[in-house]
Design a protein around this nucleic acid. Structure first.
Length: 512
RNA sequence: GGCGGGGUAGCUCAGUUGGUUAGAGCGCGGGACUCAUAAGCCCGAGGUCAGUGGUUCGAUCCCACUUCCCGCUACCA
Protein backbone atom coordinates (compact mmCIF):
# COMPACT_ATOMS: atom_id res chain seq x y z
CA UNK A 1 0.00 0.00 0.00
CA UNK A 2 1.34 3.40 -0.91
CA UNK A 3 2.08 5.74 1.92
CA UNK A 4 1.25 8.78 -0.15
CA UNK A 5 -1.84 10.88 0.26
CA UNK A 6 -3.06 13.68 -1.97
CA UNK A 7 -5.87 15.95 -0.86
CA UNK A 8 -7.15 19.12 -2.46
CA UNK A 9 -9.47 21.98 -1.66
CA UNK A 10 -11.45 23.54 -4.47
CA UNK A 11 -9.59 26.38 -6.10
CA UNK A 12 -11.43 29.48 -5.10
CA UNK A 13 -12.90 32.04 -7.42
CA UNK A 14 -11.63 35.37 -6.22
CA UNK A 15 -14.34 37.64 -7.51
CA UNK A 16 -15.18 38.57 -3.94
CA UNK A 17 -13.45 38.34 -0.61
CA UNK A 18 -13.12 35.00 1.17
CA UNK A 19 -16.15 33.87 3.16
CA UNK A 20 -17.02 31.16 5.65
CA UNK A 21 -17.55 28.56 2.94
CA UNK A 22 -13.99 28.96 1.70
CA UNK A 23 -12.71 28.76 5.25
CA UNK A 24 -14.73 25.62 5.90
CA UNK A 25 -13.51 23.70 2.84
CA UNK A 26 -9.97 24.67 3.67
CA UNK A 27 -10.12 23.82 7.35
CA UNK A 28 -11.71 20.46 6.71
CA UNK A 29 -9.09 19.59 4.12
CA UNK A 30 -6.31 20.72 6.40
CA UNK A 31 -7.69 18.50 9.13
CA UNK A 32 -7.33 15.42 6.93
CA UNK A 33 -3.94 16.49 5.60
CA UNK A 34 -2.59 16.91 9.11
CA UNK A 35 -4.01 13.66 10.34
CA UNK A 36 -2.56 11.65 7.48
CA UNK A 37 0.80 13.31 8.06
CA UNK A 38 0.96 12.26 11.69
CA UNK A 39 -0.20 8.85 10.58
CA UNK A 40 3.06 8.69 8.65
CA UNK A 41 1.86 9.38 5.14
CA UNK A 42 3.65 11.60 2.67
CA UNK A 43 0.94 14.13 2.22
CA UNK A 44 0.47 16.56 -0.60
CA UNK A 45 -2.13 19.15 0.23
CA UNK A 46 -3.14 21.60 -2.47
CA UNK A 47 -5.23 24.74 -2.54
CA UNK A 48 -5.34 27.74 -4.85
CA UNK A 49 -7.35 30.18 -6.92
CA UNK A 50 -9.33 29.95 -10.13
CA UNK A 51 -8.80 33.20 -11.98
CA UNK A 52 -10.57 32.53 -15.23
CA UNK A 53 -13.50 34.17 -16.85
CA UNK A 54 -15.66 37.06 -17.65
CA UNK A 55 -16.42 38.10 -14.11
CA UNK A 56 -12.74 38.54 -13.36
CA UNK A 57 -12.17 40.33 -16.64
CA UNK A 58 -14.99 42.75 -15.93
CA UNK A 59 -13.99 43.29 -12.33
CA UNK A 60 -10.48 44.12 -13.47
CA UNK A 61 -11.78 46.60 -16.06
CA UNK A 62 -13.93 48.20 -13.43
CA UNK A 63 -10.90 48.65 -11.22
CA UNK A 64 -8.94 49.93 -14.21
CA UNK A 65 -6.34 47.25 -13.82
CA UNK A 66 -4.72 44.69 -16.01
CA UNK A 67 -6.52 41.41 -15.35
CA UNK A 68 -3.38 39.67 -14.22
CA UNK A 69 -2.46 42.44 -11.85
CA UNK A 70 -5.95 42.43 -10.49
CA UNK A 71 -5.70 38.67 -10.01
CA UNK A 72 -2.38 38.98 -8.27
CA UNK A 73 -3.91 41.19 -5.65
CA UNK A 74 -7.02 39.22 -5.11
CA UNK A 75 -5.30 35.87 -5.16
CA UNK A 76 -3.11 37.19 -2.40
CA UNK A 77 -6.10 37.66 -0.16
CA UNK A 78 -6.69 33.93 -0.50
CA UNK A 79 -3.06 33.17 0.16
CA UNK A 80 -3.36 35.30 3.25
CA UNK A 81 -6.44 33.38 4.27
CA UNK A 82 -4.48 30.14 4.01
CA UNK A 83 -2.00 31.54 6.46
CA UNK A 84 -4.66 32.92 8.73
CA UNK A 85 -6.34 29.52 8.82
CA UNK A 86 -2.97 27.91 9.52
CA UNK A 87 -3.31 25.62 6.53
CA UNK A 88 -0.51 23.16 6.01
CA UNK A 89 -0.83 23.25 2.24
CA UNK A 90 2.23 22.17 0.28
CA UNK A 91 1.41 24.32 -2.69
CA UNK A 92 -0.89 27.10 -3.78
CA UNK A 93 -1.78 26.98 -7.43
CA UNK A 94 -3.14 29.75 -9.57
CA UNK A 95 -4.79 29.14 -12.90
CA UNK A 96 -2.92 32.15 -14.29
CA UNK A 97 0.40 30.40 -13.83
CA UNK A 98 2.40 29.15 -16.78
CA UNK A 99 2.62 25.62 -15.43
CA UNK A 100 -1.13 25.48 -15.35
CA UNK A 101 -1.56 26.81 -18.89
CA UNK A 102 0.85 24.21 -20.18
CA UNK A 103 -1.01 21.52 -18.34
CA UNK A 104 -4.47 22.56 -19.56
CA UNK A 105 -3.43 23.02 -23.16
CA UNK A 106 -1.77 19.66 -23.09
CA UNK A 107 -4.88 17.99 -21.81
CA UNK A 108 -6.88 19.78 -24.48
CA UNK A 109 -4.55 18.58 -27.22
CA UNK A 110 -4.83 15.01 -26.05
CA UNK A 111 -8.61 15.18 -25.97
CA UNK A 112 -8.75 16.76 -29.39
CA UNK A 113 -6.33 14.25 -30.87
CA UNK A 114 -8.33 11.40 -29.47
CA UNK A 115 -11.39 12.81 -31.13
CA UNK A 116 -13.08 13.59 -27.82
CA UNK A 117 -13.50 17.23 -28.76
CA UNK A 118 -15.13 18.53 -31.91
CA UNK A 119 -16.14 21.89 -33.30
CA UNK A 120 -19.82 22.66 -33.64
CA UNK A 121 -22.37 25.30 -32.78
CA UNK A 122 -23.95 26.09 -29.49
CA UNK A 123 -27.37 27.58 -29.66
CA UNK A 124 -29.98 28.53 -27.16
CA UNK A 125 -31.96 31.25 -25.50
CA UNK A 126 -29.50 33.66 -24.03
CA UNK A 127 -30.14 36.42 -21.56
CA UNK A 128 -27.55 39.15 -21.73
CA UNK A 129 -28.39 40.52 -18.31
CA UNK A 130 -28.32 37.08 -16.66
CA UNK A 131 -25.29 35.96 -18.67
CA UNK A 132 -27.00 32.63 -18.95
CA UNK A 133 -28.52 30.28 -21.45
CA UNK A 134 -31.98 28.90 -20.85
CA UNK A 135 -33.58 25.74 -22.13
CA UNK A 136 -36.77 25.81 -24.19
CA UNK A 137 -38.95 25.00 -21.19
CA UNK A 138 -37.37 27.72 -19.10
CA UNK A 139 -38.50 30.36 -21.53
CA UNK A 140 -41.96 31.83 -21.97
CA UNK A 141 -43.46 34.18 -24.53
CA UNK A 142 -45.43 37.26 -23.58
CA UNK A 143 -46.70 39.74 -26.14
CA UNK A 144 -44.36 38.29 -28.68
CA UNK A 145 -41.33 38.76 -26.44
CA UNK A 146 -39.43 35.76 -25.15
CA UNK A 147 -38.20 35.95 -21.59
CA UNK A 148 -36.83 33.72 -18.87
CA UNK A 149 -39.39 32.20 -16.53
CA UNK A 150 -36.93 32.42 -13.70
CA UNK A 151 -35.58 35.93 -13.93
CA UNK A 152 -38.10 37.48 -16.29
CA UNK A 153 -35.32 39.04 -18.31
CA UNK A 154 -35.44 39.13 -22.06
CA UNK A 155 -33.79 36.33 -23.97
CA UNK A 156 -32.64 36.09 -27.56
CA UNK A 157 -31.74 33.16 -29.77
CA UNK A 158 -27.99 32.95 -30.00
CA UNK A 159 -25.82 30.67 -32.01
CA UNK A 160 -22.15 30.53 -31.27
CA UNK A 161 -19.37 28.39 -32.59
CA UNK A 162 -18.07 26.19 -29.84
CA UNK A 163 -15.98 23.14 -29.20
CA UNK A 164 -17.79 20.23 -27.64
CA UNK A 165 -16.56 17.43 -25.46
CA UNK A 166 -18.15 14.05 -26.09
CA UNK A 167 -19.56 13.73 -22.63
CA UNK A 168 -22.49 11.57 -23.78
CA UNK A 169 -20.07 8.88 -24.84
CA UNK A 170 -18.90 8.43 -21.25
CA UNK A 171 -22.26 8.02 -19.59
CA UNK A 172 -22.02 4.27 -19.11
CA UNK A 173 -18.39 4.33 -18.15
CA UNK A 174 -19.22 6.87 -15.46
CA UNK A 175 -22.08 4.79 -14.12
CA UNK A 176 -19.75 1.84 -14.07
CA UNK A 177 -17.26 3.87 -12.10
CA UNK A 178 -19.87 4.88 -9.51
CA UNK A 179 -21.09 1.31 -9.34
CA UNK A 180 -17.68 -0.24 -8.95
CA UNK A 181 -16.62 2.12 -6.21
CA UNK A 182 -19.54 3.04 -3.99
CA UNK A 183 -17.39 5.48 -2.09
CA UNK A 184 -16.21 7.37 -5.13
CA UNK A 185 -18.76 10.04 -4.29
CA UNK A 186 -19.52 10.77 -0.66
CA UNK A 187 -21.72 11.35 1.20
CA UNK A 188 -24.12 8.75 -0.11
CA UNK A 189 -27.03 11.10 -0.64
CA UNK A 190 -24.86 13.10 -3.01
CA UNK A 191 -23.83 9.96 -4.79
CA UNK A 192 -27.48 9.20 -5.48
CA UNK A 193 -27.99 12.62 -6.96
CA UNK A 194 -25.08 12.26 -9.31
CA UNK A 195 -26.11 8.82 -10.42
CA UNK A 196 -29.65 9.91 -11.17
CA UNK A 197 -28.31 12.89 -13.04
CA UNK A 198 -26.06 10.77 -15.21
CA UNK A 199 -28.74 8.16 -15.72
CA UNK A 200 -31.10 10.82 -16.98
CA UNK A 201 -28.80 11.19 -19.96
CA UNK A 202 -25.72 13.23 -20.72
CA UNK A 203 -25.39 15.66 -23.57
CA UNK A 204 -22.11 16.71 -25.02
CA UNK A 205 -20.58 19.60 -23.19
CA UNK A 206 -19.60 22.91 -24.69
CA UNK A 207 -16.01 23.40 -23.63
CA UNK A 208 -15.00 26.66 -25.24
CA UNK A 209 -16.23 30.25 -25.31
CA UNK A 210 -15.78 33.04 -27.79
CA UNK A 211 -17.52 35.77 -25.87
CA UNK A 212 -14.57 36.82 -23.78
CA UNK A 213 -10.81 36.52 -23.82
CA UNK A 214 -9.63 36.19 -20.20
CA UNK A 215 -8.75 32.55 -19.99
CA UNK A 216 -6.61 29.90 -21.58
CA UNK A 217 -6.65 29.85 -25.34
CA UNK A 218 -7.67 26.77 -27.24
CA UNK A 219 -4.29 25.75 -28.68
CA UNK A 220 -5.68 25.03 -32.11
CA UNK A 221 -8.02 27.99 -32.43
CA UNK A 222 -7.15 31.39 -31.05
CA UNK A 223 -10.72 32.67 -31.16
CA UNK A 224 -11.72 30.34 -28.38
CA UNK A 225 -11.07 30.32 -24.67
CA UNK A 226 -11.16 26.99 -22.87
CA UNK A 227 -14.26 26.42 -20.75
CA UNK A 228 -13.76 27.29 -17.12
CA UNK A 229 -14.18 23.80 -15.68
CA UNK A 230 -11.87 22.10 -18.10
CA UNK A 231 -9.42 24.78 -17.12
CA UNK A 232 -10.04 24.87 -13.37
CA UNK A 233 -10.27 21.15 -12.62
CA UNK A 234 -6.97 20.54 -14.32
CA UNK A 235 -5.28 22.46 -11.50
CA UNK A 236 -5.22 19.22 -9.57
CA UNK A 237 -2.86 17.85 -12.20
CA UNK A 238 -0.89 21.01 -12.94
CA UNK A 239 0.32 21.16 -9.38
CA UNK A 240 1.85 17.71 -9.82
CA UNK A 241 3.76 18.91 -12.88
CA UNK A 242 1.47 17.23 -15.36
CA UNK A 243 1.97 16.71 -18.32
CA UNK A 244 5.29 15.38 -17.14
CA UNK A 245 3.93 12.06 -15.99
CA UNK A 246 7.42 10.96 -15.11
CA UNK A 247 7.72 13.67 -12.55
CA UNK A 248 7.93 12.36 -9.00
CA UNK A 249 5.05 14.47 -7.80
CA UNK A 250 2.77 13.05 -10.45
CA UNK A 251 3.99 9.50 -9.92
CA UNK A 252 3.60 9.72 -6.16
CA UNK A 253 0.33 11.54 -5.87
CA UNK A 254 -1.89 10.90 -8.84
CA UNK A 255 -4.63 9.69 -8.66
CA UNK A 256 -5.77 11.99 -5.92
CA UNK A 257 -7.07 10.47 -2.69
CA UNK A 258 -9.74 13.07 -1.98
CA UNK A 259 -11.05 16.13 -3.72
CA UNK A 260 -12.75 17.98 -0.89
CA UNK A 261 -15.42 20.26 -2.30
CA UNK A 262 -18.70 21.97 -1.46
CA UNK A 263 -21.89 20.31 -2.61
CA UNK A 264 -22.52 23.13 -5.08
CA UNK A 265 -19.71 22.05 -7.36
CA UNK A 266 -20.24 18.34 -7.08
CA UNK A 267 -21.36 17.74 -10.64
CA UNK A 268 -18.26 19.25 -12.12
CA UNK A 269 -16.06 17.06 -9.96
CA UNK A 270 -18.07 13.87 -10.05
CA UNK A 271 -19.20 13.90 -13.68
CA UNK A 272 -17.15 16.19 -15.90
CA UNK A 273 -13.81 15.65 -14.23
CA UNK A 274 -13.73 11.86 -14.34
CA UNK A 275 -15.11 12.00 -17.89
CA UNK A 276 -12.29 14.29 -19.01
CA UNK A 277 -9.77 12.01 -17.36
CA UNK A 278 -11.23 8.81 -18.77
CA UNK A 279 -11.26 10.39 -22.20
CA UNK A 280 -7.64 11.40 -21.84
CA UNK A 281 -6.80 7.95 -20.59
CA UNK A 282 -5.69 9.22 -17.20
CA UNK A 283 -6.54 7.64 -13.84
CA UNK A 284 -9.53 9.14 -12.04
CA UNK A 285 -9.39 10.40 -8.46
CA UNK A 286 -10.27 7.97 -5.70
CA UNK A 287 -12.86 10.06 -3.97
CA UNK A 288 -14.94 13.19 -4.29
CA UNK A 289 -16.42 14.44 -1.04
CA UNK A 290 -19.17 17.07 -1.33
CA UNK A 291 -19.61 18.68 2.03
CA UNK A 292 -22.52 20.89 3.09
CA UNK A 293 -22.78 24.61 3.58
CA UNK A 294 -22.27 26.66 6.68
CA UNK A 295 -25.40 28.60 7.41
CA UNK A 296 -25.89 31.48 9.74
CA UNK A 297 -28.67 30.46 12.07
CA UNK A 298 -30.89 28.51 9.74
CA UNK A 299 -30.44 30.78 6.81
CA UNK A 300 -27.99 31.06 4.03
CA UNK A 301 -25.66 33.92 4.69
CA UNK A 302 -26.44 36.90 2.57
CA UNK A 303 -25.82 40.58 2.58
CA UNK A 304 -29.49 41.44 2.54
CA UNK A 305 -30.11 39.44 5.69
CA UNK A 306 -27.13 40.98 7.38
CA UNK A 307 -26.20 37.65 8.87
CA UNK A 308 -22.82 37.20 7.30
CA UNK A 309 -20.17 35.90 9.62
CA UNK A 310 -16.82 36.82 8.18
CA UNK A 311 -14.23 34.20 9.08
CA UNK A 312 -11.57 36.84 9.50
CA UNK A 313 -13.69 38.79 11.95
CA UNK A 314 -14.52 35.64 13.90
CA UNK A 315 -10.85 34.71 14.07
CA UNK A 316 -9.96 38.20 15.16
CA UNK A 317 -12.49 38.12 17.93
CA UNK A 318 -12.29 34.52 19.14
CA UNK A 319 -9.14 33.06 17.68
CA UNK A 320 -8.46 30.56 14.94
CA UNK A 321 -8.49 27.31 16.88
CA UNK A 322 -11.92 27.90 18.38
CA UNK A 323 -13.30 28.41 14.88
CA UNK A 324 -11.58 25.30 13.55
CA UNK A 325 -12.79 23.30 16.50
CA UNK A 326 -16.33 24.54 16.10
CA UNK A 327 -16.55 23.81 12.39
CA UNK A 328 -15.13 20.33 12.76
CA UNK A 329 -17.01 19.29 15.86
CA UNK A 330 -20.37 21.01 15.73
CA UNK A 331 -21.14 20.58 12.05
CA UNK A 332 -22.51 17.20 11.12
CA UNK A 333 -20.06 16.55 8.32
CA UNK A 334 -21.68 16.06 4.95
CA UNK A 335 -24.78 17.98 5.98
CA UNK A 336 -25.30 21.70 6.14
CA UNK A 337 -24.24 23.16 9.43
CA UNK A 338 -24.80 26.44 11.10
CA UNK A 339 -22.76 28.84 13.09
CA UNK A 340 -23.63 31.75 15.31
CA UNK A 341 -21.64 33.69 17.81
CA UNK A 342 -23.69 32.30 20.68
CA UNK A 343 -23.06 28.73 19.63
CA UNK A 344 -19.41 29.40 19.07
CA UNK A 345 -19.05 30.96 22.50
CA UNK A 346 -20.90 28.10 24.15
CA UNK A 347 -18.65 25.63 22.37
CA UNK A 348 -15.48 27.48 23.35
CA UNK A 349 -16.49 27.67 26.97
CA UNK A 350 -17.76 24.15 27.46
CA UNK A 351 -15.44 22.08 25.35
CA UNK A 352 -12.26 24.05 25.11
CA UNK A 353 -12.04 26.11 28.28
CA UNK A 354 -13.98 24.11 30.88
CA UNK A 355 -13.33 20.64 29.60
CA UNK A 356 -9.97 20.30 27.89
CA UNK A 357 -8.33 23.57 28.95
CA UNK A 358 -9.20 23.12 32.55
CA UNK A 359 -8.09 19.50 32.48
CA UNK A 360 -4.63 20.62 31.43
CA UNK A 361 -4.65 23.36 33.99
CA UNK A 362 -5.67 21.29 37.00
CA UNK A 363 -3.29 18.46 36.21
CA UNK A 364 -0.37 20.77 35.52
CA UNK A 365 -0.98 22.93 38.56
CA UNK A 366 -1.08 19.81 40.69
CA UNK A 367 2.09 18.46 39.12
CA UNK A 368 3.83 21.72 39.69
CA UNK A 369 2.90 21.94 43.35
CA UNK A 370 3.39 18.32 44.26
CA UNK A 371 5.85 16.77 41.83
CA UNK A 372 8.06 19.81 41.15
CA UNK A 373 7.14 19.65 37.48
CA UNK A 374 8.58 16.24 36.81
CA UNK A 375 7.09 13.21 35.18
CA UNK A 376 6.54 10.89 38.18
CA UNK A 377 8.67 7.79 38.74
CA UNK A 378 7.72 4.40 40.15
CA UNK A 379 4.59 3.90 38.17
CA UNK A 380 2.28 1.06 38.96
CA UNK A 381 -0.87 1.18 36.89
CA UNK A 382 -3.93 -0.29 38.49
CA UNK A 383 -6.89 -1.61 36.55
CA UNK A 384 -8.60 1.73 36.53
CA UNK A 385 -5.57 3.47 35.02
CA UNK A 386 -5.14 0.84 32.35
CA UNK A 387 -8.78 0.77 31.43
CA UNK A 388 -8.69 4.45 30.63
CA UNK A 389 -5.30 4.52 28.98
CA UNK A 390 -6.09 1.52 26.82
CA UNK A 391 -9.10 3.20 25.27
CA UNK A 392 -6.74 4.81 22.82
CA UNK A 393 -5.06 1.63 21.66
CA UNK A 394 -8.38 -0.18 21.67
CA UNK A 395 -9.88 2.42 19.37
CA UNK A 396 -6.82 3.11 17.26
CA UNK A 397 -8.08 1.20 14.22
CA UNK A 398 -11.48 2.82 14.52
CA UNK A 399 -9.93 6.26 14.52
CA UNK A 400 -7.96 5.52 11.36
CA UNK A 401 -11.11 4.15 9.84
CA UNK A 402 -13.07 7.27 10.71
CA UNK A 403 -10.55 9.42 8.93
CA UNK A 404 -10.39 7.21 5.87
CA UNK A 405 -14.16 7.50 5.61
CA UNK A 406 -14.24 11.23 6.32
CA UNK A 407 -16.22 10.49 9.46
CA UNK A 408 -15.15 13.60 11.30
CA UNK A 409 -17.94 13.49 13.85
CA UNK A 410 -17.10 10.07 15.21
CA UNK A 411 -13.48 11.14 15.46
CA UNK A 412 -14.45 14.25 17.38
CA UNK A 413 -16.87 12.37 19.61
CA UNK A 414 -14.13 10.02 20.61
CA UNK A 415 -11.89 12.90 21.61
CA UNK A 416 -14.59 14.66 23.58
CA UNK A 417 -15.44 11.43 25.38
CA UNK A 418 -11.84 11.07 26.43
CA UNK A 419 -11.84 14.61 27.77
CA UNK A 420 -14.81 13.82 29.99
CA UNK A 421 -13.30 10.54 31.05
CA UNK A 422 -10.00 12.19 31.94
CA UNK A 423 -11.69 14.84 34.04
CA UNK A 424 -13.80 12.24 35.78
CA UNK A 425 -10.73 10.10 36.40
CA UNK A 426 -8.92 12.96 38.07
CA UNK A 427 -11.98 13.67 40.17
CA UNK A 428 -12.58 10.09 41.21
CA UNK A 429 -8.94 9.39 42.02
CA UNK A 430 -8.74 12.46 44.26
CA UNK A 431 -4.98 12.84 44.05
CA UNK A 432 -5.17 15.69 46.58
CA UNK A 433 -6.12 13.11 49.19
CA UNK A 434 -3.34 10.72 48.26
CA UNK A 435 -0.35 12.72 49.37
CA UNK A 436 0.65 10.10 51.91
CA UNK A 437 0.43 7.33 49.33
CA UNK A 438 3.15 8.43 46.94
CA UNK A 439 3.14 5.32 44.87
CA UNK A 440 -0.50 5.69 44.02
CA UNK A 441 -0.20 9.42 43.62
CA UNK A 442 2.60 8.99 41.10
CA UNK A 443 0.53 6.64 39.01
CA UNK A 444 -2.48 8.91 39.06
CA UNK A 445 -0.49 11.90 37.91
CA UNK A 446 1.42 9.89 35.34
CA UNK A 447 -1.83 8.54 33.95
CA UNK A 448 -3.34 12.00 33.83
CA UNK A 449 -0.32 13.38 32.00
CA UNK A 450 -0.50 10.55 29.50
CA UNK A 451 -4.16 11.28 28.92
CA UNK A 452 -3.37 14.92 28.19
CA UNK A 453 -0.64 13.85 25.80
CA UNK A 454 -2.85 11.40 23.95
CA UNK A 455 -5.78 13.76 23.68
CA UNK A 456 -3.51 16.57 22.52
CA UNK A 457 -2.15 14.41 19.74
CA UNK A 458 -5.63 13.58 18.55
CA UNK A 459 -6.41 17.27 18.65
CA UNK A 460 -3.45 18.21 16.52
CA UNK A 461 -5.28 17.97 13.18
CA UNK A 462 -8.19 19.91 14.65
CA UNK A 463 -6.48 22.72 16.52
CA UNK A 464 -2.80 22.49 15.67
CA UNK A 465 -1.63 25.59 17.55
CA UNK A 466 -3.32 24.71 20.81
CA UNK A 467 -2.32 21.10 20.53
CA UNK A 468 1.30 22.11 20.10
CA UNK A 469 1.06 24.37 23.12
CA UNK A 470 -0.19 21.47 25.18
CA UNK A 471 2.39 19.05 23.81
CA UNK A 472 5.09 21.57 24.51
CA UNK A 473 4.58 20.66 28.19
CA UNK A 474 6.30 17.40 27.36
CA UNK A 475 8.76 18.95 24.92
CA UNK A 476 7.06 17.21 22.04
CA UNK A 477 7.54 19.16 18.84
CA UNK A 478 5.43 19.17 15.71
CA UNK A 479 7.88 16.98 13.85
CA UNK A 480 7.73 14.37 16.58
CA UNK A 481 3.97 14.00 16.64
CA UNK A 482 2.98 10.53 15.67
CA UNK A 483 -0.53 9.18 15.87
CA UNK A 484 0.65 5.70 16.66
CA UNK A 485 2.16 6.94 19.92
CA UNK A 486 -1.31 7.17 21.43
CA UNK A 487 -1.14 3.41 21.76
CA UNK A 488 1.80 3.76 24.09
CA UNK A 489 0.83 4.06 27.77
CA UNK A 490 4.36 4.78 28.89
CA UNK A 491 5.52 7.27 26.35
CA UNK A 492 6.52 9.85 28.92
CA UNK A 493 9.89 9.33 30.49
CA UNK A 494 9.81 9.31 34.26
CA UNK A 495 11.94 11.98 35.89
CA UNK A 496 12.02 14.32 32.93
CA UNK A 497 11.13 17.92 33.45
CA UNK A 498 7.90 19.22 32.09
CA UNK A 499 6.97 22.78 31.36
CA UNK A 500 4.35 24.99 32.84
CA UNK A 501 1.38 25.77 30.68
CA UNK A 502 -0.48 29.01 30.15
CA UNK A 503 -4.22 29.05 30.03
CA UNK A 504 -4.98 27.31 26.75
CA UNK A 505 -8.41 28.77 26.08
CA UNK A 506 -9.80 31.79 27.80
CA UNK A 507 -13.46 31.71 28.55
CA UNK A 508 -15.57 34.12 26.59
CA UNK A 509 -17.90 36.23 28.65
CA UNK A 510 -21.05 36.71 26.69
CA UNK A 511 -22.71 40.04 27.20
CA UNK A 512 -25.36 40.03 24.54
C1' G B 1 -43.92 17.13 -11.99
C1' G B 2 -39.76 13.16 -11.62
C1' C B 3 -35.79 11.16 -8.52
C1' G B 4 -33.35 11.32 -3.75
C1' G B 5 -32.52 12.63 1.58
C1' G B 6 -34.81 13.85 6.03
C1' G B 7 -38.61 14.94 10.23
C1' U B 8 -35.62 11.39 17.42
C1' A B 9 -35.48 15.53 24.45
C1' G B 10 -36.01 23.29 24.92
C1' C B 11 -31.48 23.58 21.18
C1' U B 12 -27.64 20.86 17.94
C1' C B 13 -27.33 16.01 16.55
C1' A B 14 -26.08 10.28 17.38
C1' G B 15 -28.46 5.60 17.13
C1' U B 16 -31.46 1.18 16.25
C1' U B 17 -29.02 -5.33 10.39
C1' G B 18 -36.84 -4.88 14.78
C1' G B 19 -36.34 -7.13 20.99
C1' U B 20 -36.13 -5.80 28.20
C1' U B 21 -35.98 1.28 31.35
C1' A B 22 -34.41 5.32 23.24
C1' G B 23 -28.64 8.18 23.71
C1' A B 24 -24.74 12.46 23.82
C1' G B 25 -23.46 17.55 24.23
C1' C B 26 -25.47 22.29 25.39
C1' G B 27 -29.40 24.55 28.39
C1' C B 28 -32.37 23.76 33.05
C1' G B 29 -33.16 21.97 38.62
C1' G B 30 -30.73 19.75 42.87
C1' G B 31 -26.36 17.54 45.61
C1' A B 32 -21.39 16.35 47.46
C1' C B 33 -16.32 17.93 46.91
C1' U B 34 -12.05 21.55 46.29
C1' C B 35 -6.54 19.86 42.48
C1' A B 36 -8.31 23.50 38.63
C1' U B 37 -10.15 28.85 34.05
C1' A B 38 -16.49 29.48 40.39
C1' A B 39 -13.91 24.70 36.17
C1' G B 40 -14.82 19.37 37.15
C1' C B 41 -17.89 15.21 39.47
C1' C B 42 -22.80 12.97 40.98
C1' C B 43 -28.24 12.90 40.73
C1' G B 44 -32.58 14.60 38.25
C1' A B 45 -36.52 16.79 35.13
C1' G B 46 -37.61 16.61 29.91
C1' G B 47 -39.18 12.41 24.17
C1' U B 48 -46.71 8.96 22.28
C1' C B 49 -38.46 8.56 18.03
C1' A B 50 -43.90 13.76 12.30
C1' G B 51 -49.17 11.40 11.69
C1' U B 52 -52.33 7.14 10.24
C1' G B 53 -52.65 2.17 8.94
C1' G B 54 -50.14 -2.58 7.95
C1' U B 55 -46.48 -6.86 8.47
C1' U B 56 -44.72 -9.23 13.12
C1' C B 57 -44.96 -12.59 19.26
C1' G B 58 -42.86 -7.52 19.22
C1' A B 59 -41.54 -1.36 15.26
C1' U B 60 -38.69 4.59 16.53
C1' C B 61 -36.12 1.17 13.04
C1' C B 62 -39.56 -2.89 7.62
C1' C B 63 -44.04 -1.71 4.10
C1' A B 64 -48.13 1.71 2.41
C1' C B 65 -50.43 6.27 2.64
C1' U B 66 -50.58 11.46 4.63
C1' U B 67 -48.04 15.83 6.01
C1' C B 68 -43.88 19.13 6.48
C1' C B 69 -38.65 20.44 5.27
C1' C B 70 -34.41 20.07 2.08
C1' G B 71 -31.44 18.63 -2.25
C1' C B 72 -30.86 17.23 -7.57
C1' U B 73 -33.46 17.80 -12.21
C1' A B 74 -26.60 20.42 -17.00
C1' C B 75 -23.56 24.53 -19.88
C1' C B 76 -23.46 31.28 -13.76
C1' A B 77 -19.98 28.87 -11.11
Amino acid sequence: MSKNYYITTPIYYPSAKPHMGHAYSSIVSDFFARFKRIEGFNVYFLTGTDEHGLKIQRAAEKNKKEPLKFCDEISNTFKDLSKTLNLSNDDFIRTTEKRHHISVQNLWNILEKKGEIYLSKYSGWYSVSDEAFYAEDEVEEKNGVKSSKVSGSMVEWVEEESFFFKLSKWQNKLLELYEKNDKFILPKSRRNEVISFVKSGLKDLSVSRKSFSWGIQVPTNKDHVIYVWLDALTNYLSALNYPNTKDNLYKDYWPCDVHMIGKDILRFHAVYWPAFLLAADLPVPKRIYGHGWILSGDEKMSKSKGNILDPLEIINEYGLDPLRYYLLKEVSFGNDGNISKDKLISCINSDLANNFGNLCQRVMAFTEKNMSLQVPKNINFNEEDLKILNKFSDNYDNLIDYINNQNINSYMNFIVDQMFIANKYFNDQEPWKKKNNLKRLNSIIYTSLELIRKISILLYPVIPNSSLKALNIFNITEEQINIESIKNNKFLESGTNIKKIDILFKKVLSND
